[in-house]
Design a binder for these strands. Structure first.
Lengths: 259, 259
DNA sequence: AACTGTGAAGAACTTCACAGCA
DNA sequence: TGCTGTGAAGTTCTTCACAGTT
């Protein structure tokens, strides 16, 4: 998982497990696609395949929402779209601001998946005065000075941070002070927020690192040489701090040091 | 979590739990920051705070890697950086290709977090002939026709898909056929891949939807009106398919239909 | 004295397998 | 007959709490 919640511990919100909540958007996406093809009903098996999960899990997930299926038949697509949307809070309009309009911020501003799900980009905000007024995705970029008034005037409660890491905490503090209570953080930093504020993070490089981990294992298993061009990056490496007799991984290899 | 693995079931790779693997990049980032500030050692408590997890979890995680700490003292920062990097496979060079050079692809190409962790962008690939040759992040964009040769010539095993949803599966198929075995997918689609290929997905709108879910709960709890400008999106909504007597959520409210 | 490493308990999540209903 | 909904079993992850080590 590339992402994780911060604060607000393992309290199931109204009985729906976090893991289930995290999958509802997947189901919704699959259902929306079926809806567009005018498919009237779908079985747990079919929907599960479309969403990339297994059917027992899907049925269990839906059981937390209520009994919305029909035995022997399946689920009514339109009805389920509505129920899940409502459960996720997507039947209301959520104004969001995006702070940090670099490549990523611009990509987010242009991303169609937001608008189609009730998220309305209320404003794009950047600290660079040269950006101010420039249109991105049809909206004029506003300067950071206006952050507080934008939040208040639009009743924004969700903020997206796409600034460099160094600016993220400061932006976060200002968002929170102005009334934002949910933050989606793309900056590679851990944000400190007060109780009651939710943070979710997306770190692009973390995902790649997890892939690399598994990729490395594959290469090892097959005795295929890793496709990389040599064990380069191993250069800037530390020697064991002190003393000896340390147990290596699995106890089989005695912590070998590189060149 | 915004992300999930596909295929390759719950088999712990060499005894390290998935949940632990997913946190190693976080620790690494925190450690790198300490390293840059020339901090020599760190306790589990301090490092956990910097990484945004609790210390028991961190110690447990590290225990899967081996015994790399010193009781009464803590962990040697440089040494731990090396051990985690090695475990993640970051001590080798991973050439990656990015397919789909829109805003998001460009943002990824420019993202510094890749290069600094052993990921080298071997090529940027786009289907639009008008893009071909145009420099993005210092690299000329190459046309999709060259995809297979680029993969083979550079020994690429990790591919990043940042195309529109409609093109993603086709791109994926070509990547896999050419030898890619790990895919990071930004397109909002479920990708089908053969056994042995890892897919991780990042869906920008899924994260927002999860935030909206929790945000909705907060608003409910406090009897504060939701900050959105009216319950707009509730328009295109289905009526209950047929029959009656269905159990609503928690059994307390009888599945109310909107206007 | 301070802090790691880890068995053991507990919580969360997943999967099984089948009763129950249309 | 076919498919949902769900107790129960199984698995993974987290947290506790303390023995062990420097």
């Amino acid at each position: 998982m590339a992402t994780g919640r911060t604060h607000r511990p393992a309290t199931r919100s109204r009985g729906i497990p976090e893991a289930t909540v995290a999958r509802l958007p997947l189901y919704l996406r699959a259902l929306t696609a079926l809806s567009e093809r005018s498919v009237p009903t779908v079985s747990s098996e079919e929907l599960a395949a479309a969403a990339g999960v297994n059917s027992a899990k899907l049925r269990k997930d839906f059981s937390y929402l209520g009994s919305y299926g029909t035995r022997g038949v399946g689920y009514d697509v339109e009805y389920l779209v509505y129920q899940i949307s409502r459960e996720l809070g997507l039947t209301q309009d959520w104004p969001v601001v995006i702070v940090g309009i670099g490549n990523l911020g611009a990509a987010l501003a242009n991303y169609g998946g937001f608008a189609s799900r009730g998220f309305r980009v209320a404003a794009l905000i950047d600290a660079d005065p040269a950006m101010a007024g420039r249109p991105v995705a049809g909206l004029p970029v506003r300067h950071t000075d206006e952050l507080e008034s934008i939040i208040r005037d639009n009743g924004v409660s969700i903020g997206v941070i796409a600034t460099p890491a160094g600016a993220a905490q400061q932006v976060c503090d200002r968002l929170v002070a102005a009334g934002v209570t949910s933050i989606l953080n793309f900056a590679p930093t851990v944000l400190a927020v007060p109780e009651g504020v939710d943070v979710r993070k997306v770190d692009l490089s973390i995902e790649l690192q997890i892939l690399a981990f598994h990729e490395q294992r594959k290469a090892g298993e097959e005795t295929t040489a890793p496709s990389g061009a040599g064990a380069a990056a191993a250069a800037a490496v530390a020697a064991r701090p002190a003393a000896g007799g340390r147990k290596g991984p699995e106890g089989d290899v005695p912590a070998v040091m590189p060149a």
